[in-house]
Design a protein around this nucleic acid. Structure first.
Lengths: 385, 385
DNA sequence: CTGAAAGCGCTTACAG
DNA sequence: CTGAAAGCGCTTACAG
């Protein structure tokens, strides 16, 4: 049986197409009784309007495009979770565009532009150039970024308060009595990493601790490198008692290095991560880390986009509590939302050891030694970069 | 500037809308020269047809819906990767529907049906009831399942050859000289688990080994349970020399249990997983496991769907090499595709120890003992269930 | 090979 | 409060 059209409904209800259309669009001009009758007919005949026809007539589409850099990262999945939860409640559907590295990113954006399918675009950024998106935005397409790397951009975006994130981690450590606190940097080309590092430095300063340059290790978000460098660091007599890493994957490598050196987490060395990916609750010991609110970021980004597309509705009843808005000329619309992080205290941190601990033995893993089997943590998954 | 329409192009080219439409649709009836001219005009003016109008006029939409059970599982992400790679080359876009547990699954299906947006549906199944999908399919909407649990269904689907998968794992162990091989079952309610278990039993039989019921442990795909049960198993004097687990997450728990008991992988106990999720290459030692070809499954499913939607094109030039098709009344269309697995041999398996090994100490982790910190593997992520 | 016309299913002024 | 009409941008027989 062929799909019913508005004409059929009109006929069945003894009305004109116009009136049916009006009830479809919730016009207040239609008589409540009539309205009810039409609704009833639609219901009983299981009618749903053709979205193609609606889109054509109204001149706008019910889709929002979402570009993600592959789905295999925890972060992306978590953001999507938040996005989906708000889009689901809206009349929009998500068109998924996966921007794999191998593919020409510009071509993807081009495809989106020319297809004209999307009423707005949600982009979980990674390393891609932002210019094509900015051009798109200037040409009128609403775009909102979930700016994972904190890259500066004129586009409306939601990101994490990376600076403050590291500061709360440091404060936690300082409260526990640590004074020799090392920092394993990520990729300093990323603004998020610069911010995290600034947070580290400033928090140290606030605690009256003068930073020891020797305690900053450049890990490049690369676990093997981190493991090696941290092992070297721990072999030194003036080794730190705590280490903050710029993401969880890297923190795993730090923990690994600690074991490699015959030390223990947290008794000898406290370790703090950044991200709070799912696996961090299950490491041995469970990792204390700075949580990035990925689902909340997805929610905020989706609401922001819906708001700019539709003017207002898409109700965000309680606002994005706790988020700091800045930038936007026009309050509540554009600008950057910086989401607050929180410290998830688990078991990888504890009070600073009262006296320097002498390692039971020298590091088993040096630069040229293969990793010991079974020496500890396993998988390093969904890295932040 | 307003978007160009077919009328504008016609005017600019000095032709009628009809002709322009014909070139848009690659009609052979149009004069090559004319065609070229039209194409040139479209190109220079950056014209792209309105998909809403096209959809309305043609009576079909350029979307394929994809239902996924949340994005946080490696499996789903990997399948999506394959799906995206083929859809990308087609005129279709993916509408993403995330079916979270909390949500009414039937409502989702209902929404998809009534929106009429999708020309076909790709479903990465999990635990959901298949009936709504079967109804949908009977009503004419092409549906293809990526049947992760091997649940029997009349719907066209692609799945893994679970039976054969376990058999190759067992053959590998038998070749290494193992004869006491334990099996950690998953959830036996799932057909995939039943198949894997049958594979285990049959392979044993083929090797002339009579199965010891004591070597089958019911793990329910629950890592803590597995760790505990396997620890108990290993404490027995007649413990196995090899253990196959029904997924990788569970294999991690098995490795954990081996350490708990003061034994080593693979010297004392060989361990084999199932899935080959990303993290399995990075465990200590790297896990030997049966690879499920998730991306390939995505590719196969997408091609299958495209084929049933569009009759034939959507070129799958080399066919789905290696896959076994069965069922389909009408060759190459419906039915179930069973994808071959492969054994990824890494370092968690080795020759059977020649003589029973005496543990250095008794298990440190019993049912009531908390896990030792640092005793081994960390995160258990993206479990198969 | 090309054009004029009707139609896809809905919306939106405009009358009444 | 309701209806007739024109239009959204494309496609598809049907003429020529």
């Amino acid at each position: 049986m062929p799909k019913l059209t508005i004409r059929d409904i009109a006929q069945l209800a003894g009305l004109s197409k116009s009136t049916v259309s009006l009830v479809l669009n919730n016009s207040p001009k239609v008589d409540p009784a009539t309205r009810e009758r039409v609704l009833e007919v639609m219901r009983s005949h299981n009618y749903t309007p053709s979205s193609a026809a609606t889109a054509l007539a109204k001149g706008r589409t019910p889709f929002i495009g979402m570009i993600v850099p592959g789905l295999t990262w925890h972060m992306v999945a978590a953001v999507n979770y938040g996005v989906a939860s708000v889009i689901e409640q809206s009349p929009y559907e998500i068109i998924l565009y996966t921007s794999t590295n191998e593919k020409d990113y510009t071509a993807l954006v081009e495809r989106i532009t020319t297809s004209g399918l999307s009423a707005g675009l949600l982009v979980v950024t990674h390393d891609q150039p932002l210019d094509p998106l900015e051009k798109l935005h200037r040409s009128g397409l609403p775009v909102v970024l979930v700016n994972t790397l904190g890259t500066p951009s004129s586009l409306p975006s939601v990101q994490t308060d990376n600076y403050e994130g590291t500061r709360i981690a440091l404060r936690h450590l300082v409260e526990l009595g640590h004074t020799r606190i090392a920092c394993v940097q990520g990729l300093m080309a990323y603004v998020c990493c610069q911010d995290r590092y600034r947070g580290y430095l400033d928090a140290l300063d606030e605690a009256g601790i003068s930073p020891d340059p020797g305690l900053t290790v450049d890990g490049g978000f690369h676990p093997p490198t981190v493991r090696e460098r941290v092992s070297e660091l721990l072999a030194r007599p003036d080794r730190p008692t705590a280490i903050v890493a710029q993401n969880d994957s890297t923190a795993y490598a730090v923990m690994q290095a600690v074991i490699d050196c015959g030390l223990r987490v947290p008794q000898d060395i406290s370790v703090v991560g950044f991200d709070d990916i799912a696996s961090s609750a299950d490491t041995h010991p469970p990792l204390t880390t700075v949580r990035q609110p990925f689902p909340e970021m997805g929610v905020a980004a989706a609401r922001m986009l819906l708001r700019t597309i539709d003017g207002d509705d898409a109700g965000a009843p309680d606002g994005d509590a706790g988020a700091v808005t800045s930038g936007g000329t026009d309050a509540g619309t554009a600008g950057t939302i910086s989401m607050p992080t929180s410290l998830i205290v688990r078991e990888s941190t504890t009070g600073a050891p009262s006296k320097p601990f002498t390692p039971a033995r020298t590091p088993a893993t040096g630069p040229d030694t293969p990793p010991r089997p079974w020496s500890g943590l396993g998988p390093n998954i969904s890295s932040q970069r």
